[in-house]
């Protein structure tokens, strides 16, 4: 099992070597990049907005219930919700959700291209399939995931505020003050740094699984599932490492 892991790791780095090369045509790369930003990034906005709004709301309700004490001002509920969203929910949980949506899309689309010989067709034409197909996906994720996470932070905070106000669980003015109280901008830097790492993990690992599919439609599905599991493990592991490095 350990041998298989290291063989896979070696194959992953070799794969990255063939992906991170100068594109054959910058014009075609630009076209592919725009297509991938639309497919992987823009299409994820509704999901991110929906999840963030409601998770923000749930976070406010849970925090308000747990800090329901006359000696704890509502300002601190706002602080707790803000930190929860900025530090962990938006960068990590939303990335895990994107690993499911975007990652499985990448691995299954590449896997389908592999089993239908479309990658061989590219190779025969003299086009590096890894570079042409995977590089725009990685760049699109690196560019657009931080945008999605900023979106998620705003929507989470909005959802938290609306829930608190609507359910009359907090004083909205005091709660809102908590969002701005002793705000540390470094936490946003931390969140976006994590997001960039996670974007690379999601796009490259899912691409590796899709690119190396052998067989037919069943294997494409299996590769997609394996990719999501591997990405989730890696994201959780790197979340711990990055938090140790950046917040200690």
């Amino acid at each position: 099992m350990l041998k298989g892991f290291f063989l896979g790791l070696g194959s992953y780095f070799l794969f990255l070597g063939s992906v991170l090369r100068r594109p054959e045509s910058w014009r075609e790369f630009g076209k592919s990049l725009m297509r991938e930003i639309e497919l992987l990034g823009l299409s994820s906005i509704p999901l991110v907005v929906f999840i963030s709004l409601f998770m923000g709301a749930v976070l406010t309700i849970q925090t308000a219930i747990n800090l329901d004490d006359p000696f704890i001002p509502d300002l601190y509920i706002g602080v707790a919700v803000r930190e929860g969203i900025v530090l962990e929910f938006s960068p990590t949980i939303v990335s895990l959700i994107l690993a499911g949506k975007v990652g499985s899309n990448i691995s299954s689309s590449l896997g389908a291209m592999r089993v239908t010989e479309q990658m061989d067709a590219l190779q025969v034409m003299g086009i590096n399939p890894a570079g042409y197909l995977v590089l725009p996906k990685i760049v699109a994720c690196l560019l657009f995931f931080p945008v999605l996470i900023v979106f998620s932070i705003f929507m989470g905070l909005l959802g938290g505020y609306l829930a608190g106000d609507w359910l009359r669980m907090v004083n909205p003015d005091h709660f809102l003050m908590g969002y701005f109280d002793e705000f540390n901008p470094y936490f946003v830097v931390y969140a976006l740094t994590k997001t960039v790492f996670f974007a690379f993990i999601i796009s490259s690992i899912s691409a590796w699984y899709g690119f190396h599919v052998k067989g037919g439609a069943v294997e494409v599905g299996k590769a997609s599932t394996k990719a999501v599991v591997a990405m989730s493990f890696t994201i959780i592991l790197f979340n711990y490492i990055l938090t140790n490095v950046m917040l200690q």
């Binding site: 010989e117 479309q118 067709a121 034409m125």
Partner: peptide, 13 residues
């Protein structure tokens, strides 16, 4: 390779 054209079994379009 630009001097080559190939038609695949499953078309590979």
């Amino acid at each position: 390779r630009q001097e080559m054209g190939m038609v695949f079994q499953a078309s590979a379009l």
